[in-house]
Design a protein around this nucleic acid. Sequence first.
DNA 1: CGTAATCTTGACGTTTTTTTTACGTTCTCT
DNA 2: AGAGAACGTAAAAAAAACGTCAAGATTACG
Lengths: 236, 236
Amino acid sequence: MSPKHEILLIEDERNICNFIVTTLKSNDYKVNYALNASSGLSLAAAGCPDLILLDLGLPDMDGIDVIRNIRNWSNVPIIVISARTQEKEKVEALDAGADDYITKPFGTSELMARIRTALRRSTINNNMLLPTQNQYVAKDLVIDYEKHIITIAGNIVHFTQIEYKILTYLAQNAGKVITYDSLISHVWGPFADSNNRILRVNMANIRRKLESNPADPQYIFTEIGIGYRMIDNENL
Amino acid sequence: MSPKHEILLIEDERNICNFIVTTLKSNDYKVNYALNASSGLSLAAAGCPDLILLDLGLPDMDGIDVIRNIRNWSNVPIIVISARTQEKEKVEALDAGADDYITKPFGTSELMARIRTALRRSTINNNMLLPTQNQYVAKDLVIDYEKHIITIAGNIVHFTQIEYKILTYLAQNAGKVITYDSLISHVWGPFADSNNRILRVNMANIRRKLESNPADPQYIFTEIGIGYRMIDNENL
DNA sequence: CGTAATCTTGACGTTTTTTTTACGTTCTCT
DNA sequence: AGAGAACGTAAAAAAAACGTCAAGATTACG
């Protein structure tokens, strides 16, 4: 179950470079490295790595420009390596599109943790963004976003406009608690009264159509004082 | 793979000072020391150490003021060294921004463990500020800050608003002692009654849901007279 | 123009949470 | 060992949050 992700390291200091390459290899990553920015960019374009570790203090090019260059054609996660004296550059790097940063000197465990996190985030995004989910399925409920149709156990059930908005917003964030406020501002706009009475009435109506026993919901759960949570989509 | 972190010790008793310096050096730390508060502050500013060990009973300045002074310009972890008779000062020190405390007399292994923990936390925090950690994981417990969901051994467990606030605050400061006062003012606001009766009731309820044996907690420990401490996040 | 559907508001009973109260247990220090 | 403080726990009281019903207001549409 080893990841075998491919990592590209762009680092000009020989010692640090060797250290990181060794660490990564012993953690079962495939590693490539470049000792300056220009060859790093070539390798990035050629190899399509799963993650890039980039030192900001390269001799031949400004690190920020390297990030911008990469971001022109790829969303590969970039973790920036910076010295303690480069506080300002760190912020610029993140603004330019870096995903995370790590400050020299750093420990191996910290480095590995950051890499794991970045990779996890990116694989999730890759799988979520491209084949956009156009259906929500859970138990007897199917929401077809394209056709704008909701069926329960095969039967088409009609929901009003507002009910549909609430339902789809919860469905598209299935498994997540959605606060009353965010739900209200999503449905009624940002200037709506943040009192949730209307929401309560609508939720009662939704549940009357959706749940066989509204008092013991199977699809939408109340997190008292916070908001609502819909059960996870079974399609994922 | 030795860290080579730099530690500053501020301690007026010669014997203890020598003992600690020797211990730290033999554990591969770079050590600096001061025998009074004012020279300690100068060294702290000049040397930018990775961690400060501060005795509370200094002759020339109140230890609390030393902490406040440092916290004005640095987040360097501070571990306070206190005598058993300085219970009140310990709490004040933690509220003033100290990260942990150790009571004289102490053993080397205890000291080293606390230093390791504090250093690890600080390097992580330094780098994590922007891309915030979105999960806490320890043993069977997972707190998903984004989804606002807590699972124990895979099962979703419901916590009330207040319980959730307490739990997440402790989790986000995992490994660190959180005083009753700071916990209360974080949950109930700065003007809340600083009596911790309500906190005790809530903690009992949290533990009933969280711990298999609430009388022998695995996740949240009581530091009698001071506050609570949650076990370290395993994700970092 | 009128009817039906939808949306909003107010009222009220129920459930859940929060706080208070009370008391037993553990810990600390003399 | 024992007194006093700190802590944990249970149960009751108070407060808040939620779900539901019904009536009024608005909109959609024939």
